[in-house]
Design a protein around this nucleic acid. Sequence first.
DNA 1: TTGAAAGCGGTACCAG
DNA 2: CTGGTACCGCTTTCAA
Lengths: 353, 353
Amino acid sequence: MEQTMNLEEVAKRAKVSAATVSRVLNNASVVKGSTRARVMKAIEELRYHPNLHARSLAGGKSRTIGMIVSNMENPFFFDIYKTVELDAHARRFEVVVANTDYRSEQLVASIRLMIGRRVAGLAVVVSEMEPALIEELTGSDIPVVFYDVGAPRHNITNIRVNYRRGVEKVVDYLHSLGHRRLGFIGHHSILGPINERMKTVLDAVAANPALEVRAAADADTLEGGRQAMRALLGSGEAPTAVICVNDVMAVGALRELREHGIQAPRDISVTGFDNIKLSEFCYPALTTVHIPRDRIGHLICDRLIPGSDRPEWNGDEIVIDPEFMVRDSTGPARQVQHAHRSVSPRLSRSWPG
Amino acid sequence: MEQTMNLEEVAKRAKVSAATVSRVLNNASVVKGSTRARVMKAIEELRYHPNLHARSLAGGKSRTIGMIVSNMENPFFFDIYKTVELDAHARRFEVVVANTDYRSEQLVASIRLMIGRRVAGLAVVVSEMEPALIEELTGSDIPVVFYDVGAPRHNITNIRVNYRRGVEKVVDYLHSLGHRRLGFIGHHSILGPINERMKTVLDAVAANPALEVRAAADADTLEGGRQAMRALLGSGEAPTAVICVNDVMAVGALRELREHGIQAPRDISVTGFDNIKLSEFCYPALTTVHIPRDRIGHLICDRLIPGSDRPEWNGDEIVIDPEFMVRDSTGPARQVQHAHRSVSPRLSRSWPG
DNA sequence: TTGAAAGCGGTACCAG
DNA sequence: CTGGTACCGCTTTCAA
């Protein structure tokens, strides 16, 4: 009925002052039992819900932390978010997320939004970068944690993964299996100027003169991975092993292989990255590199929410070493054969299309 | 540097009043060009970001809509969210989400949170229900859209899927393929008192005396689907077809079959529900029921954001008819054979474990 | 076209 | 233990 139900109305009904109502709401100081009861009753009856905007305005604090990610659709990001939310809730904080879809304009917009909301802390877990970002953050005293981008600075700390080490493990493994012609599938953001990940792969390959690599990029989705694999298959000599920038794209890639009647790992090996749950459930299960999203989530919360700095944070940067996971999507390179290139699509499928 | 950068500071620097700064910020009324320029400059230099809390407090409005879902991890919910966000952004609204993890206590907490934030509209896309909900919502004049639960009421409208019809199509199809012993895999929330979905399956089966069904429930995740399938396989006579409450659990179920060396659809047929992207990318591709998440998302936005009621909303309730999608995970029931029950785990796997 | 001032709904400090 | 009151930062009349 009343779209404007406020402290005062409650106070009036409970025959106390607004200040007292505020007190019972924050169960602060000692409010007499009977008084508290009256207030509670009034709150119930009026279905009063405190205005959070007014609260954080008056209090100056926000009890919510912000999180910006590139693509919530990818479980990698979601898993981190999930952990952050769990930790935050345990400390009675809320977390509000924003997607950038790998667009740096969106990144800036999201940063602005978060600053506007006066979040108590901000986690930026994105692949793209925008120079104007630090500019934007300057002057706001919001504690920030960056994942995988940005440099430490006042009030901003960094978590990064030793992506290079992870890729090296993958490349070395494939090499040991006899693979020489490699493919790389990334998402569009790798087309950016200095893409760490792309470069890492190229470097790892360059370190071994026997190897060659061809890359394809598409959206960071199942469909994108599929398209990228299609591109790799459609031009030049097909690689015997394909390294995917993450598990989602790898699963997409696997499907495209299936459509062509190409079997993994018999005909082509495929690797993922991240070790999301899906990588165990797809077929064949993915050889991948584990990145501990839960640890990352915990680190973020520990850093952003006051009153619980765990010891792991000693400096302004933490580097995480990824772990290689061998599963079923990789195998020895087939010797002399390009046979799979001539198999017509769906030839090997025996079930109805 | 200043953690307290406000209108007044900007006004001071630009040598105008706070009111004027507010005007340029909202590009309202006619501010003289030169004045506007001065203000803009001051804003830039001071890196001023308006306090959104103060803004919605003073303005009384919020320009953000809330969305509550059961499980963002499940692409079904995510897809809806994505569409809502897209539409919202197009109308310069923000959307903030909350997860309930199928816990009705969380549902209530989330509703409270959203009311506290004075969202401009609220979408409740959850499977669980909580009687206290309507109570909670009463008196708040926030427009609400429910998906799949709740009854129309003042300011609250409904979107529902004719789940029954969808299940009937699945059951009929399986029946026509010769299946008689059915399995049903649902998530834990189906254990609730009157679960529509579970009941629907039982009804559909009851309608055909030749059919029998056994159910198993677990978490709404890949792992949950796997466990549920394990349970189904581990007790009594194995079903020849398993209906899963959604695609995610179906994919989990498929994996468990693989571990047992049971092939789908040769040995057991499996169906999903929702038709998420993954259902095309898993192996075998899932026979499922399509639920148009994008349409649901559009409907939600049209209803919640003022100034764009599309014609589709004629009453307080919209019912969506799902569409049956046959793919590769279903096939004819094998005649006389329980052979797969005796196949030892992984027997048929030829790749390394 | 611009400024002054009254809220918006709370919080928190100061008296009592 | 409780009430009064000065803000918090912005929007919005009302005058000038």
